[in-house]
Amino acid sequence: MLEAEELYRFYRSGEEETRALRGISLKVAPGEVVAISGPSGSGKSTLLSCVAGLDDPDGGIVRIAGQRISHRPEADKARLRARLVGVLFQSGNLIEHLTLAQNVELAQRVGGRRDPAHRAELLDRLGLSARAGAWPSRLSGGEAARAGLAVALANRPSLLVADEPTGELDRRSEGPVLDLIRDQARSHTAVVIASHSPAVRRMADRVVQLRDGRVA
């Protein structure tokens, strides 16, 4: 599960200071899907970076599965990310010079695992078995999104963080991806999705609306 308490994050560029997060707390239980929505610039991406352990908040604390991930040395954070967190971006989830299957295998090995069975099952569930040997540049938009999900789920994470995962998909491709995310949640994963898609909001157990770095 995910516990984020009182997160603050400021950016400074020259004279200007942007307050991206102004005291956000968020708890997501295993099996729960939380959608984060809000206009652009409301702090969605910053919040996701902080809870995924990709960025440190200036104030506040983030725990995943009971382990603090914020404010630790980068090496520790990397280890925790590999074991506990799966991240899915809108695009660019795959290493271009590796095939789809190799991308998933690479993610597993980075997490210190060898789980060919899980890998095959993932690809099968996501309808990608036939494309396992394809290069990322040859995948269609929907396939690329599903492949990104396969990589994110490669290590059975406790927390799945997705930033606009269906932004480039139409509704018909969006459906299967969201179903798969939903399925994953049932296997005791906490899911946080930032999206402005109505379908995501409908699928979520809870919607958190952000405005100007605060929960609206």
Binding site: S140, D170, S173
Partner: peptide, 10 residues
């Protein structure tokens, strides 16, 4: 003429 083309991906 102003047309919207919709349809699933692929």
């Amino acid at each position: 003429d102003q047309v919207a083309i919709t349809g699933p991906s692929g």
